[in-house]
């Protein structure tokens, strides 16, 4: 198939970027979206141009590194990640707009590559259980009901891609933060630091410049890991609870 691409090119944060047109020719339908870009890049190279920079690593939908906004939607219209989007979902002759994930807390590095380390800093603020090596009781010492374990797993599946923030009109990271808070709050091991965690993560999120949640639910719609928006409710409850406790 042949496609008309409009790709965001920008040398670095200091220069201005623009959409540039490219033609992608003879693209097999079995190609993934990133393999299509590989072919375009090979073509650019052969013409002495610099290839389009984009982030990727696992190419199987789990590392969360790939991050393209395709026709205005983070990860495109797939129900998974950009790397697991296959060209058979597109029509021959279609025009495709390819832009980076945009959120003020994700500064651009080059072309389609952005800096998402704000997400790491939010996790550093409290996304953990303080268990030191060597001190753990037997793994079966504390029973965890299957439903709780499943609930924790559902939230823990977040791949940290940032699509939720990129899709949100307020660039809110509530789905991402809610996922971690819900994961750990669903397990007995996560209880002791539960409130501290919610407070610290939300404060860090605000400090990083992510916006508020106004329930647009764009995040849930684009999330490749199917994190349910219910985690935001959980986050709000834990946060409110912690605030009350803190003020006592």
């Amino acid at each position: 198939m042949n496609l008309h691409l409009k790709v965001w090119r920008q040398k670095n944060a200091a220069t201005k970027g623009a959409l540039v047109s490219y033609e992608a020719r003879n693209i097999p339908e079995d190609c993934s979206f990133l393999e299509m870009l590989d072919l375009v890049n090979e073509d650019l190279l052969s013409r002495g141009e610099e290839p389009i920079a984009f982030d990727h690593d696992c190419r199987e939908g789990i590392c969360g590194m790939c991050s393209l906004t395709i026709n205005g939607i983070p990860h495109g219209t797939s129900d998974t990640t950009t790397c697991q989007l296959y060209m058979r979902k597109f029509k021959d002759g279609q025009t495709i707009y390819i832009e980076p994930f945009r959120a003020s807390a994700f500064p651009l590095l080059r072309d389609l590559s952005v800096n998402r380390s704000a997400f790491d800093r939010i996790q550093q603020a409290g996304g953990f259980i303080s268990a030191h090596v060597g001190a753990a009781p037997d793994g079966n010492a504390i029973l965890v009901p299957k439903t709780d374990a499943d609930h924790a797993m559902e939230a823990a599946a977040c791949i940290g891609c940032g699509a939720c923030a990129a899709a949100c009109p307020n660039a809110s990271a509530m789905l991402f933060v809610g996922a971690k808070v819900t994961h750990l709050a669903s397990l007995p091991q996560g209880q002791p630091e539960r409130e501290r965690r919610a407070l610290a993560m939300v404060r860090r999120m605000d400090a990083e410049g992510f916006g508020n949640c106004s329930n647009y639910l764009e995040c849930e719609a684009v999330c490749p890991a199917e994190i349910p928006a219910l985690v935001i409710g959980q986050l709000n409850r834990d946060y409110a609870h912690a605030l009350v406790k803190e003020s006592l």
Partner: peptide
Amino acid sequence: HCVALGVPFAR
């Protein structure tokens, strides 16, 4: 140790 860290192993 992984259980203590909150790894949601299948139950």
